[in-house]
C-alpha cells in the first residue's frame, strides 16, 4: 500500500515542483502584499489574481502537534508526529515532524526539509531548529 499522494492541479503543481527542487514556495499577492497557503487561483484576502510564486524561508514555529499511534493506513508507520507549522511568512501548513515522535513542544522553532513520499513527489517536512 502506498502513502496518499497529492493530486496535482494547476494550482498545486508549482508548489510540488518547488518541493522537488528543495524550495518551499508560497503564493504572494502584489495587490495587497499578502502571502497565502494553500495555493488558490485568487488572493484569499483581496480577491485579485495578481499572484506570484515566491520562495519561503523554510523557518516556522510549531503551532500544535500530535503523535499518531493508530495510523491512517498500513502505508503510514505509527508512531509519527503530525504537526501544524506556522510559517515565518504568516500562513499555517500541516506537515510531519522529522525525528523522535513527540519530542517537541508548541512554540519550538522548525526548519523545512524535503522528503521523498513516493510517485516522484517530495513533501515538505520539518525538523526542530536549534539555531
Amino acid at each position: 500500500m502506498e502513502k496518499l499522494l497529492p493530486p496535482l492541479t494547476h494550482c498545486s503543481k508549482p508548489f510540488y515542483d518547488g518541493c522537488n527542487q528543495n524550495e518551499l514556495r508560497l503564493q504572494f499577492c502584489s495587490s495587497c502584499n499578502t502571502y497565502q497557503f494553500y495555493p488558490r487561483s485568487v488572493c484569499h484576502s483581496c480577491g485579485e489574481d495578481s499572484i506570484s510564486w515566491v520562495n519561503a524561508s523554510g523557518r516556522a514555529t510549531l503551532s500544535s502537534f500530535t503523535v499518531v499511534r493508530r495510523s491512517l493506513t498500513d502505508a503510514y508507520e505509527a508512531p509519527y508526529t503530525v504537526i501544524l507549522a506556522l510559517l515565518e511568512e504568516g500562513p499555517t501548513m500541516m506537515s510531519q515532524l522529522i525525528g523522535e515522535p513527540g519530542r517537541c513542544a508548541i512554540g519550538d522553532f522548525l526548519l523545512v526539509e524535503f522528503v521523498e513520499w513516493g510517485g516522484e513527489i517530495k513533501l515538505p517536512l520539518f525538523r526542530k531548529n536549534f539555531e
Binding site: A75, W117, L123
Partner: peptide
C-alpha cells in the same frame, strides 16, 4: 485537504 493535509497521514482523532 487532499493536496495539503491528507498526504501527511492525519486521522480524525489526530
Amino acid at each position: 485537504h487532499p493536496q495539503f493535509e491528507q498526504p501527511y497521514g492525519p486521522t480524525v482523532p489526530a
